[in-house]
Simulated assay, not measured.
Amino acid sequence: MTRTTDVSRFPPCRAEATPPPTLHAEAIQLFCLPHAGAGASAYRDWPVMLAPGIEAIPVQLPGRENRHREPALHSASELVAELRGPLASRAGRDFALFGHSMGALLCYELAHVLSALGKPPRHLFVSGLGAPHLPPAGPRLHDLPDDELLAVIAELEGTSPEVLAQPELVQLLLPLFRADLEVWETYVAHRGSLQVPITAMGGRHDPGVSLDMLSAWGSLTSADFHLAVFDGGHFYHHAAPDDVAAVLKERLRESGPVPAVAEKYGHGTRA
């Protein structure tokens, strides 16, 4: 079956002269959503890293890289509404979701929406983010003054010092960071339990996400739950890509397709 390709939302993240990696015929699709301020290129090495058994598909959000002319969206509901149709069309019968930080929140929402459409993911990987029903763990960041927000961004070590040292780039990046942080900081959890296996992943030394916060994801699924902890901070996956790949491959081998049934939603709040 031919799958719909949307280059704006699912860019190849490789040079045109570089051939795509060889995949098994039964390769599992893994849609990868980026952290705040980042684009699909955050996963530029993953297609080769995870082939041939996993087809890594980076997801591009509005306002960045090849979609830089589009306005950034400021709420999870807007982003999920924008992505659900293309994702449902692009996804085959066997797919999973991976998101880091803000991307984990979007993956959680998309897992609910796609499950309700009768197309649940095989597995949900949430990385670098505490469970969304927990109370906020720190102060609001998206409306900080520029210099204070830049200090927070630098401390997380997800943006190179060379980029942060260029005022022109900073002025382009700050509105995007603010929009993405607002997505998380204004989010209100109102979903019930998923019927999808969840693996929560994080760095042992992440200053903003404790192991207890990661473990709390286990209460959001009626299926299997795993916690994978790595050496490193918030961007542990940049430092240990082989270890991350091993966990992804192992969990996807262990988890089978989940029943394609619409779930029942409960109610609750983040606060």
Rank of each mutant, 00 (worst) to 15 (best):
R3K: 04
T4L: 13
D6P: 01
D6E: 08
C13H: 07
P19S: 09
A25K: 11
A27K: 04
I28D: 01
C32Y: 06
G37C: 07
A38N: 05
A40D: 02
W46T: 00
I54S: 03
L61E: 05
N66R: 13
R67H: 08
R67T: 02
P71N: 11
A72N: 04
L73S: 14
S75P: 00
A76S: 09
S77V: 12
V80K: 13
R84P: 00
A88I: 01
R90C: 11
R93G: 12
A96F: 07
F98N: 09
F98K: 10
A104S: 14
L105H: 14
P120W: 09
P121R: 08
P121F: 12
R122E: 13
F125M: 10
G128W: 05
L134R: 15
P135Y: 15
H142Q: 04
D146M: 11
E148P: 09
L149K: 09
L150C: 09
A151R: 14
E155R: 15
T159F: 11
Q166R: 15
L169F: 09
V170T: 03
L174F: 06
A179M: 02
A179K: 10
W184R: 13
E185I: 08
T186K: 04
H190G: 11
S193L: 13
I198R: 05
T199Q: 03
M201S: 02
M201T: 04
D212K: 11
A216S: 12
S219H: 15
H226A: 14
V229T: 14
D231Q: 07
D242I: 00
A245E: 01
K249F: 01
E250Y: 01
L252C: 03
R253K: 07
P257G: 12
V261H: 13
A262K: 11
A262R: 13
K264F: 13
R270T: 15
A271N: 10
